[in-house]
Design a protein around this nucleic acid. Structure first.
Lengths: 144, 144
DNA sequence: TATTGTTATACTCTATAACTATA
DNA sequence: TATAGTTATAGAGTATAACAATA
């Protein structure tokens, strides 16, 4: 739109390319084959936000319900989540992380963070401050 | 690694999730059907860095050669790039953006930036400063 | 032999449309 | 009828392995 301040358009352009390329690098970094990145992200949500329905997890993760169905099927087959019946609504089930899931989550998260952290140690304190400040703002871009 | 300072591990963890979710939102935003995001990114590189070989584009975009082959085939079929023969090495071809490619690039980039810029207008000047500072650091994460 | 690029194949990630079961 | 979730299907994005052509 021509009424958009140039500041925003320029920042948007730079940020878009930066985000895509940084995310491409993160995704291509395959620590091991135990869980995919999407599975890990969903497992993280179940672990942090407590037992949830499939629809609630899809909403938090901002994916469509069929996408979450697939992710949850894989997590259940690996024994990382468990379903129990909803007390009032038999269409839903309540999904909780298992002890094995917690263990997997801790291991995988550590391994993946380590990969990124190894790159961060080469950065200056100033760079890290900039990244840290941007994290919270990035979260809002991803969740609106 | 246990010798990693906790600062780095914590920042890495937060940054990883933030980047992935923000990038997921960017990808899911389909402006129109003319070009995919990967095609647009490669076209941008050809447009900015001048005529290049397929291998050079793959290197800049940080993808493997077979991935770039596929992207370039789509760009060529749409008439957005052109190949000419390399004067000294007949294995390579020199890839350049066409006038139609330049036009497409400008239109698509504008549309996609606009989508992001519309979200940025809701942010404070302080937030925008944080994002702007982080862009350059993110670029280094994506290109190392 | 080494390099450049392509073809064949497969897997991740995600979506929309159509369907089932329950409310 | 409306809602929660699943199944079926498709397409974007990317990789590795095997190959062809050229250096």
């Amino acid at each position: 739109m021509s009424h958009m301040p140039p500041d925003h358009a320029e920042l948007a352009s730079a940020l878009r390319l930066s985000l895509l390329r940084a995310a491409r690098r993160l995704r291509s970094q395959r620590v091991d084959m135990a869980a995919t990145l999407s599975q890990l992200s969903a497992l993280d949500t179940v672990g942090k936000c407590g037992p949830l329905s499939a629809g609630e997890i899809a909403m938090v993760e901002r994916v469509q319900p069929p996408s979450m169905t697939k992710i949850l099927a894989a997590l259940e087959q690996s024994g990382w989540i468990e379903r129990s019946s909803h007390p009032e609504d038999r269409r839903q089930s309540i999904i909780a992380i298992t002890p094995a899931g917690l263990e997997l989550l801790a291991e995988e998260t550590r391994a993946r963070d380590e990969w990124l952290a190894k790159r961060l140690v080469e950065f200056s304190a100033e760079d890290l401050r900039k990244l840290g400040e941007a994290v919270e703002v990035l979260d809002r871009i991803g969740s609106e």
